[in-house]
Design a binder for these strands. Structure first.
Lengths: 230, 230
DNA sequence: CGTGACGTTGATATGATTCAACTTGAGTGG
DNA sequence: CCACTCAAGTTGAATCATATCAACGTCACG
């Protein structure tokens, strides 16, 4: 299971072994509970199963979700902590994870034998930052439908990379409409209507936590997905 | 001038001298020209005078600005490049800067004598990432007026840290309304009207590239500025 | 069978965009 | 010094996208 981390970069046997041994320090977090609170020290963890999100809340209750954590993702594991780690992290489903503090110590020692693991983690962090930029683009300049298309395609790629997807366009997305709305900067009601329109248009299908992208090509055009010039 | 970088952390004499010598490699970039293009290798530079922004454009012309670069800020100087560096950077005014490729090489050698400089740069990068999160919060969950208040306060703090501010609430902001709109995810017209309302309410005053915050306390409350719990 | 979380719907309000016209002010060249 | 131009800012009217409020439906679960 943990080997989904390999999606980022191939690992050596030593590293794989190391990850395997971590499974001893297993723990489980209930839906709605926090993995991380701003101000409190962050426990390094790797998520084995379940989804979580990084979020911030305004005093009047408005919430903004910055991103999602899916199986294979790590929290608080990078040596140089980023501001993203100083935001609260909340479980959206029951989350199974392992305590990776030991791993963090091993890595911060800078052992050459774990260079590949380091690289994999760095790559994961890069991807998370790139996702932040896409998120800004969506929130600032895209319509409700464009945001949804773009977001769905991003989650498709991420779930596939994590080995969670069933097929090309079918993957788990255990998010309530409220959560989607808070991520995409929309009201629940408007999100609901936009989703329905997309279903009617034959773009997607949803059933109990799974999303099926029916017309990837059209979705990519609608969302202008993946064309950051280069 | 260059010493504004010190705002981040105190530097040693050696480091200060190093920065001073850079002024030999001076160059000047016209308004509208790019400092950086996605795909092209990034020339490391430090901005001495003038403003620039990081942005991305959709095929239909919609633009989103991710952030601004002000005197004292660096581009392409960090060893581990972030996705932010893979976005185009455009001069919003005439920009005076120095080529810092040599500095970058010196730093990547990992010389202990420049540890403070390294730390200053790391801190600057952290701040830029934190600003991205604030940006997401604004775009996703704040009203037009809240976005403006929040953004203005952020720029006040940054210009003050860079030693550009005239007084507590008076600082340069050489941005057209179009640029502001593209940063804050609003249309020009709506931005214009919101600005006017804020002027009428005695919150701000603007004249030829300078912004004067007249009631900081009220602005902070309106924007919920600076209260990321902790 | 309640109860609660989630999803759906309609009616209505408002925030924001669009388009097009007009103003203003800072150059620029005659 | 004037007329011209151009970019930036301003305004009004019409329209559209999205939000809000309140009600209702549905399903899982104790």
């Amino acid at each position: 299971m943990v080997r989904r981390l390999e999606g980022q970069a191939p690992l050596s046997d030593i590293e794989r072994g190391l990850l395997g041994k971590l499974s001893v320090f297993r723990e489980s977090i209930q839906t709605g509970d926090a993995l991380t609170r701003p101000g409190k020290p962050v426990v390094a963890r790797i998520i084995i199963a379940g989804w979580a999100c990084r979020q911030r809340t305004l005093p009047d209750g408005r919430r903004q979700i910055f991103g999602f954590l899916i199986p294979g993702d790590a929290v608080g594991l990078s040596t140089a902590s980023s501001p993203l780690e100083e935001v609260s992290t909340v479980a959206l489903t029951r989350v199974e994870c392992v305590d990776a503090m030991i791993l963090k110590e091993i890595l911060s020692a800078g052992d050459e034998r774990h260079a590949r693991l380091q690289r994999a983690l760095r790559s994961a962090r890069r991807q998370e930052h790139a996702a932040l930029l896409d998120h800004i683009m969506r929130l600032g300049r895209q319509s409700a439908q464009e945001r949804l298309c773009h977001f769905f395609l991003e989650m498709r790629d991420r779930t596939r990379a994590a080995g969670l997807a069933e097929s090309d366009g079918l993957f788990p997305l255990p998010l309530t409409q409220e959560v989607l709305a808070d991520a995409l900067g929309l009201s629940i009601v408007h999100l609901n209507r936009t989703l329905q329109q997309m279903k009617r248009d034959g773009l997607i299908r949803m059933r109990s936590g799974w999303l099926d992208l029916l017309d990837m090509h059209r979705l990519e055009i609608l969302a202008d997905y993946g064309s950051h010039d280069e």
